[in-house]
Design a protein around this nucleic acid. Sequence first.
DNA 1: TGCACAATTGAATCGAGGA
DNA 2: TTCCTCGATTCAATTGTGC
Lengths: 376, 376
Amino acid sequence: MASVFPIADLRRSNDPFAWMNSIIKGDCVSALEALPDHSVDVIFADPPYNLQLGGMLHRPDQSVVDAVDDEWDQFASFDAYDAFTRAWLLACRRVLKPNGTIWVIGSYHNIFRVGATLQDLNFWILNDIVWRKTNPMPNFKGRRFQNAHETMIWASRDSKAKSYTFNYDALKASNDDVQMRSDWLFPICSGGERLKGEDGKKIHPTQKPEALLARIILASSKAGDVILDPFFGSGTTGAVAKRLGRNFVGIEREQDYIDAASARIDAVEPLGKIELTVMTGKKAEPRVAFNTLLDSGLLKPGQVLSCDKRKHSAIVRADGTLVSGTEAGSIHRVGARVRGLDACNGWTFWHYEDQGKLKPIDDLRSIIRADMAKLS
Amino acid sequence: MASVFPIADLRRSNDPFAWMNSIIKGDCVSALEALPDHSVDVIFADPPYNLQLGGMLHRPDQSVVDAVDDEWDQFASFDAYDAFTRAWLLACRRVLKPNGTIWVIGSYHNIFRVGATLQDLNFWILNDIVWRKTNPMPNFKGRRFQNAHETMIWASRDSKAKSYTFNYDALKASNDDVQMRSDWLFPICSGGERLKGEDGKKIHPTQKPEALLARIILASSKAGDVILDPFFGSGTTGAVAKRLGRNFVGIEREQDYIDAASARIDAVEPLGKIELTVMTGKKAEPRVAFNTLLDSGLLKPGQVLSCDKRKHSAIVRADGTLVSGTEAGSIHRVGARVRGLDACNGWTFWHYEDQGKLKPIDDLRSIIRADMAKLS
DNA sequence: TGCACAATTGAATCGAGGA
DNA sequence: TTCCTCGATTCAATTGTGC
């Protein structure tokens, strides 16, 4: 596991998926070009931020801030950065499956250029997500607001791709039953999670926290999916993907980062099936038609259904339709007509009486579904 | 006060500052061209967002969402929007003083294009600021994350402008003596503050909250400064500027908006010198969701939780849900189901084992809250 | 008058699948 | 390709209504 491929070896390989769960060593765009079309489900990209630092930054105690001044973060101009962004995004686009999605993280130095380029290349932005840091670096000079967040863009391949993976129900259930918002709160990567060399210095300047990647992967992929990270760095994406039962592929140029990431991923133990099962809603459950309730005897022909206020009522007919006054048809159609609307979810609108109490017929559907689950 | 000038009248005027504390009626760029060079200290701009909506959006109860579909928000293409953005930003640049700053607010639909254009025009981004909404509109279809924030960019005229106004100490003092972060929490504009017509309908579809403008103006201007808003709308910028002892000038095309803004500003009573000190407070502590315990490592996927008598137990899954037999879902739902109840507080019902003793998971939440309190 | 509950609403790029 | 049917889906805050 976590083997490393120089790009040339990959091109020579007979196995078109030799790169699965490994790190490709080399330039981002060249490596992407060695991958097959439509082969990955989710891309997470943490590209160079193009920070434009003047001189050294000192803390109030005169110590020097260890800033990101690596060679790979230097670009001559916005035009050069835009050309670079365009190139790797185009290469990503080709390897992404039609219903795949891409995440890109950045700061105000680069994220506006990345977002505009995404739109220019016809990607379709689904959300921008704010990572709020619990423990950001202070602004030492007191000349600006404390830079306490980073921005992520989540986009599908184009506006017509509607079947992308989004585990809405799992996210909602994990968030005390309210839907997940676009602002997330996490600590920056530090402590034991932060990879350090023998000298005690951090191996990578911008290592992302695993909790951030875990939410991204749990939200937008399924177990067994392939997650690509074209700027692999310290390998957080690979480590979390492996732990969560996903496949990964990383691209990285620097041997030091590759060594650290490879060892890190080898040490990861994948979670079991039970821990990985994802909460789903009714959308994913087997379809139960209304007449199933009649077939099973939970409802009987001639029985009266009503809305929760007993303002409207309807009679169940033997063929699985309802009739209410002059209106007749499916539970949905009759519900819509009596309310004077175009549409209506009959499952939640219509109620039956049980021991003097009105309960939605959706409860009866749940009983059927529970029985079906036992059988399978 | 709050007089209205057609652009032609302004050009004909002998007083070069006739526009002070008034609304200029007309096209944004033409009006800006009628103003003198280097005449304003701060610009706040809330340009059209270029929303690209499909059809109508219905709530679960079938009511229709009153979307922003105004003519002024329609652009033929990204290129057309970029040209528009470039034109008004260039015009703003000329009227801005050398040490003046500009704020632009937007959503993911337009903010990346605005940010890139700002950089292309040599503006120097000082911060991007996130406005987190306490009460955003939900995502009704469950296909994305709830869109719970908007983004503002704060920029100086160029990288060499170092003497811009930033009231660092006032902000820090108003924020319990810690420096102000880049993520701000405010409710959307509603209730008595929201301007409504005689029919009870909102006058402007996107009226911004006064608290937001107050923080912006208090942070980046001095009493007596001139604040320009090239997309004046309902006049929030003018109303807050007047209240805070600043001068304003607004540009607006629509007579209905001008009428409402003018009346609104006339009703504003400026604050005295003493009140103009510290006036922002902090919001109540944020909700801690169950998955925060996983993110922080206090609980791990696969871990077993039980009720206080060990009668019921459940397994923690990686997505932040529980599973117990055939029941799965949030801590609250699974708690309710295994007890046969409609509702259950999962925080006090479920326990984890610590040195042989069962403790409610609410204890772990308290730990998180204590950590958060330390940070704020 | 006060409390409880119902109704309304906000910058939204908001289905899936079969005929 | 479009058209049509089935049926899934909301949070916080304010305002209005009924007891």
